[in-house]
Design a binder for these strands. Structure first.
Length: 491
RNA sequence: GGUCGGUUGGCCGAGUGGUUAGGCAGCGGUCUGCAAAACCGUGUACGGCGGUUCGAAUCCGCCACUGACCUCCA
């Protein structure tokens, strides 16, 4: 039985009960990255948001087809375009072929997403691999009369479209306001109106990525790819379209217009948008030059970072905020997330060894219901996490003998945590060290631990403390517990 | 300028017309030879001014500050 969930639909500006087009199945399309730079924290936010949705929908029983595109045509420029003239005179081989740029950053993106423990989408189509589909859609839009050809390019006629349709319905804009605000940019004689956007663009002589079309050599406009590819893989109408809030206008608005013009109806039933990551209250983004790349987070190699933050820390940090809220980056917040997550994961590891009793003093069924209810309410992961921390307290109390749990409840608790922590939130325990020397290292530290235990047994505190302090100075954390000593290498 | 949003305790961040968010830090305690770690417990809040209400931080109005979009952007 699939539980009822609510999601916030940008189109209606309210939470709605989610009812898929086909019972039990969900078609999900998400705008992926434009691969012209290293992936940054903002890419992670969007990817993690919809990974969470993907995972949750599957967990509650849906079969999901998740399509996330790679934008590899539309805005790529040769790297040399702002360099000195002499660079342009270099042999062609010395310049980056656009596909090299695409390949480089696509690989970086995939690597980062893998580290963040994102599940791969069902399909990851590239705009450059769907030129034919896009040309077909451009033809349809021309045939419908909502586009015109001009000097080898094809433009969407926004004002004409707006006469019979609500252009601006998604982003809450009025066509009159748009006209007032856009007219200032004149000089583009090709377009009838500043509002019009290119659905096919003529390639200038120096533009390298170009394809033949009925209108001459060129490339598709940015908005076309999502319209064409979502239709190809999810059908003319599909359930959910996701992306960053900054894409609602003009990108998603244009998508709606294109779908209606090409097919006579809208394609998307629920629009979901994740909010932005901010840095000192300002949006973090490549165009603002304040984006910190994911690799920099993972290595700590950035002036604003006090230390390295693991992929799971980043992931947990984001999940602790609701996806529709802005999330402000800071070292303090990230370190708080790191510690909290460690506590959560340590508790999870303890579940299986909890002592069981004939009775339970804790209510696992209620806890479980609360967790699912939180997620069903427009993916409220922070609330779900707060309930998980309630579970952490239960686990620790039972371990301390301050609460009791039956074997059945213990199983239920394990099932709940496995489902939520690993399957839905997508967290995983991060390996401490994977160096080839770890076994030897293990033996050496264990030997020192033994020496210290002997010293302690003899009440030779001086030696005992010396070993502890020196190991600590190199980065080992020594813990004395009732069961004996343990150690771990600090990250 | 237009449109939409935000303003919560030391920090991050949920939520709600009257009842505990949660995490981190702080404080107190347990444990320890001492410490660390771990665990348990715990205080502080809802931008300002009005209004509606038995009661508002939660609804309404005004003001202040701030952000996003309006060009490429997750």
């Amino acid at each position: 039985m699939i539980q009822e969930i609510q999601i916030y639909n940008t189109l209606t500006r309210k939470k709605e009960v989610f009812e898929p087009l086909v019972p039990g199945k969900v078609g999900l399309y998400v705008c992926g990255p434009t691969v012209y730079g290293p992936p940054h924290l903002g890419h992670a936010r969007s990817a993690i948001t919809f990974d969470l949705l993907f995972r949750f929908l599957k967990q509650i029983g849906y079969k999901v087809r998740y399509v996330r595109n790679i934008t590899d045509v539309g805005h790529l420029v040769a790297d040399a375009d702002e360099g000195e003239d002499k660079i342009a005179k270099q042999a062609k081989l010395d310049e980056l072929e656009p596909m090299e740029v695409v390949q480089k950053y696509t690989l970086m993106y995939h690597k980062a997403m893998e580290l963040l423990n994102l599940e791969a989408p069902s399909i990851e189509p590239r705009a450059s691999g769907h030129i034919i589909e896009q040309i077909e859609d451009v033809k349809r839009i021309l045939a419908s009369g909502f586009a015109y050809e001009s000097n080898g390019s094809v433009y969407f006629d926004v004002e004409k479209f707006a006469q019979s349709h609500d252009y601006g319905k998604l982003s809450g804009r009025k066509i009159e306001d748009l006209i007032c605000n856009t007219r200032t940019l004149d000089g583009q004689d090709e377009k009838r109106s500043g509002l019009d956007f290119a659905i096919w663009k003529k390639a200038s002589p120096e533009h390298i990525m170009r394809w033949p079309s009925p209108w001459g050599e060129g490339f598709p406009g940015w908005h076309m790819e999502c319209t064409a590819m979502s239709c190809k893989y999810l059908g003319e109408t599909f359930d959910i379209h996701g992306g960053g809030m900054d894409l609602t206008f003009p990108h998603h608005e244009a998508e709606i217009a294109q779908s209606v013009a090409a097919r006579g109806h809208e394609a998307v039933r629920y629009w979901m948008h994740n909010n932005m990551i901010t840095l000192n209250g300002q949006k973090m983004g490549k165009s603002l030059g304040n984006a910190i790349s994911l690799e920099q987070f993972f290595t700590g190699n950035h002036p604003l970072l006090e230390k390295a933050y693991s992929p799971m820390t980043i992931r947990f940090f984001m999940l602790q905020a609701h996806y529709r809220s802005t999330l402000d980056f800071s070292n303090e917040a990230l370190q708080a997330a790191e510690k909290g997550m460690e506590r959560l994961l340590k508790a999870v590891a303890k579940i299986e060894s909890l002592p069981v009793s004939d009775t339970s003093s804790v209510n696992i069924a209620e806890l479980s219901a609360n967790c699912y209810a939180a997620m069903a309410d427009d993916m409220n992961s922070p609330i779900a996490i707060s309930y998980l921390f309630e579970g952490v307290k239960i686990i620790n109390s039972v371990a301390d003998g301050k609460a009791t749990i039956t074997a059945a409840d213990c199983d239920a608790l394990k099932t709940l945590f496995d489902a939520f922590v690993f399957e839905i939130l997508g967290l995983k325990a991060e390996a401490q060290s994977e160096s080839g020397n770890s076994e030897v290292l293990n033996d050496v530290v264990s030997l020192l631990m033994k020496l210290r235990a002997d010293a302690k047994a003899n009440k030779d505190w001086a030696t005992s403390d010396k070993i502890r302090n020196e190991l600590s100075a190199i980065g080992f954390e020594i813990k004395d517990t009732k069961e004996g000593m343990s150690w771990e290498l600090r990250k």
